[in-house]
Design a binder for these strands. Structure first.
Lengths: 178, 178
DNA sequence: ATAACAATGCGACAAATTGTCGCGCTTTTT
DNA sequence: AAAAAGCGCGACAATTTGTCGCATTGTTAT
């Protein structure tokens, strides 16, 4: 098996352990991988001689969201395919990521094959047959209201009629993927 | 306040009760609403004299997925904004819906203001009235799933991934009116 | 620039809710 | 008829939420 045709790949991921593991796996599959532990600046983007064909973008880098970075990436590298990856997956951020230009969106944990499949635009065609769990529905609702509150946790808590402390705790937990 | 500027709205929804309720609410807000209980055929689409400005599309009509309908709708009415609504939400179908051309994707239960906000997406013109509280959202979701389970509490609890005892307790309490 | 106001994150402990288990009874399915 | 499933609920353990307070940071108004 030869090198993949589109093989310049970036990982933008601040979790070093995960990023390194993923990088090694992908290099073994023949990709030329660059690991960015934080979002590249515009200066860095403009001095890139070999544009990436694919970018794996972690949604949350430190306390920053990467969503606003997607349009900048698409401007700098119009043909680059972006897959967003996150441990805090929500429908609301999935919608935003795809609207911003990502080709796909995955919840961690995601295997290398899941990620590569996501670049190919392969998503499970299966329709869910069960309704969301109460827990999951709550998470999705919280995420949506939080976004509408401009990321302001106190305001979201007021709108949700939930105690701020409780909301903080819920936001700190990763939701079960269903 | 006059009629909304983009006010031809379609609801494509096979749940009659929900569809009618939604239609009445939206008509009261000044929209010209057409309720389709099933997907319009291509013949029907091509004989429409007034294109819809907005379409609320239920993801699941009977046993059919509406995802494939989105491109046909966008072809027939390129400027029409589509919001997908579903009682069986998932990230995968959200990604697919947005890639297919929907402007947003919502999990039921969703209030009218939630739905209208979903159309407004990028342009946050009018701040919606207060979102549903988490408590209220939960209650409405439980009621929906309980009804779908034929009133069977044990089955509803299984679908909701909630303990039966807990569900019993919740059903024994009436939610606070918000 | 400064003051006022709002948001933030989080520990400690009380209060409330959920989870587990078991029971006897009723209803539904085989 | 028998088996399986559903029902309601008490008791107690486990977990989550609510309350409070604190120090710090960020935002808005003067």
């Amino acid at each position: 098996m030869g090198a993949p045709s589109n093989n310049i790949l970036w990982i933008i991921e601040d979790d070093e352990a995960f990023g390194n593991t993923l990088m090694l796996s992908l290099e073994r599959k023949g990709f030329g991988v660059t690991l960015w532990p934080e979002l590249p600046s515009d200066e860095q983007l403009s001095s890139i001689s070999q544009p990436p064909d694919k970018v794996i973008l972690d949604l949350k880098l430190g306390h920053t969201t990467s969503l606003d970075f997607i349009p900048r990436l698409k401007t700098a590298f119009p043909d680059c395919a972006i897959v967003v990856l996150t441990g805090y997956a929500s429908i609301n951020t999935a919608v935003q990521a795809v609207k911003a230009g990502a080709v796909n969106y995955l919840a961690k944990p995601a295997s290398v094959s899941d990620i590569l499949a996501a670049f190919d635009g392969q998503v499970s065609v299966e329709q869910p047959v069960e309704p969301l769990s109460v827990e999951r529905l709550e998470w999705e609702h919280i995420q949506r209201v939080l976004e509408q509150s401009g990321g302001n946790v106190s305001e979201a808590a007021r709108r949700l009629k939930m105690h701020r402390r409780t909301l903080q705790r819920k936001l700190a937990k990763r939701p079960k993927q269903s």
